[in-house]
Design a protein around this nucleic acid. Structure first.
Length: 558
RNA sequence: UGGGGCGUAGCCAAGCGGUUAAGGCACCGGUUUUUGGUACCGGCACUCCCAGGUUCGAAUCCUGGCGCCCCAGCCA
């Protein structure tokens, strides 16, 4: 479970589970992850997935994957497929236990009939508007529907005919008979079945013309799967009395316990399916897996690893307090993983030409460069070197502040894994822009430091003769404000500079990158070959996250 | 003026009547370094939303305030 030296995961849900196990209330725990297949999963779902599957794993229990597919208007098989892929990618296994709420439509129907028989549900002929009107307000009690006291026989007959498709959409619903004066609005005779004609359900086709509502479906599905702890988000707290009411009214063999926790909010993004759908449908991003999206698919394409996301979910904890987590936590998690596991490469994002005037024109060398400076086991690769190189434009300054330790005119700098060079001359075009640096190299400095002087800076480079041109996509936060949802017009808070594509020059080894392969471009950041667009002929890399940049802080202070 | 929740550092978050109030992220110093990265060392809440009360002792218990979130779909 937990090693003695790793901190014990402690949260209120685990405490409840541990106490239920200790008291013998349960001998094994059963959870479920219940997505609605009406969109792609996002990082907020990852929190729920890690919680449900994680808790099952740690207490030797089981976690089911169950699609909550009771609203055929919004759901489809493509979303089912994508959700399966994402949960699996995160590293979780539901074994043979993949279910659909629609698997239970028949038993659910029988439960509804039983409710009617017990006088606990009735068919109501009010229109949607009338129902709203009869419901009352937050501060005023509602009024009983005129159909509330209709006979059991009549409701039974009407409900059967609703199923048979005899009535048009919206003409009737089945309602639980609870309390129209309840201070909890959810208990004012909630609708539990509605008529939906002519929709093709992705699992059941046209078999049904009535569909059950969430509150009725969820508790009974949990019960049928013998779920012990039904974990959901805070907005369902008000529904818990309803959850319990159905299970009590039907005298079920087991009664799962619903426990609510706070959903995840992340700075500078949105985490509601409605809004994410709008971003995709409105063309504000390219797709559900656009690397700027907080979806699992987007994060995957951006270069995030399953481990980093699971780690993130562990770090943010589980509580009932509304919170908004800083991006830095997520970024820290991916840096931590990639720092250890990503091969290093050299890539120049904003190239400036360097000519080594004392390096023979025809000469070429090849250095064996380690893939990771601290992990010899990760191997090495050949990196070619010649008279003409590219370096990063930002690594040279004609007039530099004292703390600048890169290349300056007349100064020296170390080329990473190669020689120390000195800048002798700056070549500019008519506009005064620097187009080339003429430098000389010190042949004595390969793999060794000069004894008479100190060279403090190290910069990266790529051989101009061998370098490969690549598209590099630099991503920034999708929104300009920490909480776009709190904005009057959230779409106007989209960051117009969330994607900047540059043409970079990368070392030749990078052309062989497999789609999805991750690297650290030294001194720059972590990147991955785009899984859709990258090829050896046309390399494309996505920036997952930049390296920490303490120089930017110093420079920024002036 | 209804009901349900929540409030511990810049951001998460442990804590469950007796601790110097964990830990992580961020931040600030320093050491090492052929990545201004990494790693390592050190700093970072006399106080837990506020006010009273109970107690030898309160972040923890009680009372009263204040602030924030959710609920009036035939969505989930």
């Amino acid at each position: 479970m937990n090693d003695s030296d790793t901190p014990k995961k402690s949260n209120f849900i685990r405490q409840i589970i541990e106490s239920d196990l200790a008291s013998g209330k349960h001998v094994a725990i059963q959870t479920r992850f219940p997505p609605e297949p009406n969109g792609y999963l996002h990082i907020g779902h990852a929190k729920s997935i890690c919680l449900n599957f994680g808790v099952a794993e740690d207490y030797d229990g089981r976690c089911n994957l169950r699609f909550d597919d009771t609203n055929p208007h919004k759901e489809n098989a493509e979303f089912v497929r994508a959700i399966e892929e994402d949960v699996r990618w995160l590293g979780y296994d539901w074994e043979e236990r993949m279910f659909f709420a629609s698997d239970y439509f028949e038993p659910l129907y029988e439960f509804a009939v039983e409710l009617i028989r017990r006088g606990r549900a009735y068919v109501c002929d009010l229109t949607a508007e009338q129902i709203r009107d009869y419901r009352g307000t937050l501060t005023e009690a509602g009024r009983d529907s005129p159909y509330r006291e209709r006979s059991v026989e009549e409701s039974l007959d009407l409900f059967a005919r609703m199923r048979a498709g005899e009535f048009p959409d919206g003409s009737r619903v089945l309602r639980a008979k609870i309390d129209m004066a309840s201070p909890n609005i959810n208990l004012r005779d909630p609708t539990i079945y509605r008529i939906r004609h002519g929709v093709i359900h992705h699992q059941t086709g046209d078999e049904w013309s009535i569909y059950p509502m969430y509150d009725f479906t969820h508790c009974l599905s949990d019960m049928l799967e013998e779920v012990t702890h039904s974990l959901c988000t805070l907005e369902f707290e008000d529904h818990r009395p309803l959850y319990d009411w159905f299970l009590d009214a039907l005298e079920t063999p087991c009664h799962p316990r619903q426990i609510e926790f706070a959903r995840l909010n992340l700075e500078y993004t949105v985490l509601s399916k409605r809004k994410l759908t709008e971003l995709v449908d409105g063309g504000h991003v390219e797709s559900w897996d656009d690397p700027r999206m907080p979806t699992i698919a987007g994060l995957r394409r951006r270069g995030y690893t399953p481990v980093s996301i699971r780690n993130f979910c562990e770090r943010i904890g589980v509580t009932k307090a509304d919170s908004r987590v800083e991006m830095q936590i997520l970024e820290g998690c991916i840096r931590e993983d990639l720092e250890q596991h990503a091969n290093r490469r050299l890539a120049v994002l904003d190239p400036l030409k360097v000519v080594l005037t004392n390096y023979p024109e025809e000469r070429e060398e090849e250095f064996e460069v380690p893939n990771h400076p601290q992990e010899p086991g990760m191997g090495e690769r050949p990196v070619p070197f010649c008279r003409e190189l590219w370096i990063e434009r930002a690594d040279f300054m004609e007039e530099a502040p004292r703390k600048f330790k890169r290349l300056v005119t007349g100064g020296e700098v170390r080329l990473r894994n190669a020689y120390v060079i000195r800048c002798d001359e700056v070549v500019k075009d008519d506009a005064g822009e620097i187009v080339e640096l003429r430098c000389s190299y010190d042949p004595e400095t390969l793999g060794r430091n000069p004894e008479d002087r100190k060279v403090k800076g190290v910069i990266h480079w790529v051989s101009a003769r061998h370098g490969v041109s690549a598209e590099v996509r630099l991503y920034d936060r999708l929104f300009t404000v920490p909480n776009p949802e709190g904005e009057e017009d959230w779409l106007s808070a989209i960051n117009p500079e969330s994607l900047e594509a540059v043409t970079a020059v990368v070392e030749p080894a990078l052309a062989d990158a497999a789609p999805g392969e991750r690297f650290q471009f030294e001194r720059t950041g972590y990147f991955c070959a785009d899984r859709r667009d990258h090829s050896a002929e046309r390399p494309v890399f996505n920036r997952t996250v930049a390296l920490r940049d303490s120089w930017a802080k110093i420079a920024g202070k002036g």
